[in-house]
Amino acid sequence: MNPHDLLLRPASCADLPALERIAASSVHGIGSLPQDPVKLRRRLEHAEQSFQSEDVASGEESYLFLLEHQGRVIGCSGIAASAGFHERFYSYRNEFMVHASRGLRVTRRMHTLHLCHDLTGSTLLTSFYIEPEFETTVAPELLSRARLLFIRRFADRFAGSRIAAEMPGVSDEHGHSPFWSAVGERFFKMSYPEAERVSEGRSKSLIADLMPRTPVYVGLLPPVAQMSIGQLHPVGELPFQILFREGFETDTYVDVFDAGPTVAAHLDQLQTVRSAQTLTAPALDGRAPLAVHGAASSSASSSSSSSSSLSGAWYLMAAGDRQAFRATLGQLDGEGAGASLGADAMHRLGLAAGDQVDIAPLQLADASQESCHEG
């Protein structure tokens, strides 16, 4: 696959057929796209309005992006500006309680789960999906990380600096979740897939309406439910690894439905954001050098293989206003201060001379480096 053939753009109502196909391909507990054309259209209308709105950001905005390969939609990813805008955003927080008996000279450290809304107001990364044939290419990196450049580029649209993402937990091909069966189903009297349909997504306030306010003692749960806490569904491994390499942290929170890990970080701690630069697109005549408007931090630059030379390195590139936002992968022509943005990247991003473009080094796991080669 040629990385130049990838382009990420905002979704619109015209993309309903592509989104229906994506929703139909997902499994129980994965993503936040319902297999319902009416609800999907509503999601697209909301995203379109979020991209187009010139009003002061309220936190209600929800952005949805589509990734194209040679013009064909192959994946999607999203951002919710403020988790729990209409209601509190619930998670289970991992904690340990110490119980001691002086008489028996026994001390026990007990793992507990506490229902909390610590992440309410955080920016939430959502709806990640990539077609299986592209999972081993560089496409998922662009699909996931371009969202961080969008947040950086339009920081005024996101009130909090904390970013979170819920990862899918353990469930079988029928949508059976051992954690939900041991905890949620006892209070809701409905299956895991049914609960997701009723709530139209995860971590809604209806969870808090029926769930106990007291801690859940993990040691009292069936062993299979205990083992599932914090564990990933196999299809969640790819997006999890991308976010983990970015700097997201785990272990504090798990999802209230299936106990999948919820990762969180502060925006300025993430590799893509720390290493990003804002540049000015040159005139194509003579390939004028790029003007740097925001240098990467020294700590981020030192971790990149491109810190001494821009030549040959691959970059995430993002440009445009919210409605015309575009992101792609590309290389810079030349080296050092003489580096310039080539005509191909400018064309794919819809850039003219003088436009601002954000770039960040594309840092991959060693095993993935081959996937960024052309061909």
Rank of each mutant, 00 (worst) to 15 (best):
S144L: 12
V170C: 07
E135G: 07
E135A: 14
P168S: 11
I130G: 06
P168V: 05
R152F: 14
I151M: 11
V183A: 10
F134P: 02
R157P: 02
S171N: 12
A155P: 08
V138G: 03
S127I: 00
S177M: 07
E173V: 08
L125G: 04
F158W: 01
E133R: 14
E133C: 15
P132R: 07
S127Y: 08
T136W: 13
H176F: 13
D172L: 10
P132F: 09
D156A: 15
S181F: 11
F134V: 07
R152E: 12
P178E: 01
I130C: 12
S161R: 15
R153P: 04
E166T: 05
T136S: 15
I151H: 04
P140G: 08
F158N: 08
E135M: 11
R152K: 13
F134S: 04
L149M: 13
V170P: 03
A182G: 06
G160N: 14
G160D: 14
F150V: 02
R152Q: 14
D156M: 11
R152Y: 13
R145M: 06
S177D: 00
R162G: 10
S127C: 10
P178M: 02
A182W: 10
G169T: 02
E131V: 05
E185K: 07
S177P: 00
I163R: 09
T136E: 10
F128A: 06
T136P: 03
E135C: 14
A155F: 12
I130F: 11
F128W: 12
F128T: 05
P132E: 09
S171W: 09
P140V: 02
I163C: 07
A139P: 07
S161A: 14
E131A: 14
R152D: 11
Y129F: 15
R157C: 14
R152V: 04
E135L: 10
E135F: 07
E135P: 04
L142E: 08
I130D: 06
L124S: 05
L124G: 05
I151Y: 04
F154N: 02
F158A: 03
L149P: 02
L142R: 07
T136L: 15
H176I: 12
R157K: 07
W180A: 00
A139H: 01
E133I: 12
R147T: 01
T126L: 13
L148E: 03
S181W: 11
F179G: 03
S144T: 00
W180P: 03
T126Y: 13
D172K: 08
I130H: 02
S171K: 08
A164D: 03
A146W: 00
I163M: 13
V170D: 00
S171C: 15
S181Y: 12
P178V: 02
P140D: 06
A155W: 11
G160R: 15
V170T: 05
E185A: 14
A159D: 11
L125F: 15
H174D: 10
F150M: 06
L142C: 09
E135K: 10
V183Q: 06
A164Y: 11
V183D: 05
A139S: 01
F179W: 02
Y129P: 04
P168E: 05
P140E: 09
Y129V: 00
W180E: 01
L142K: 05
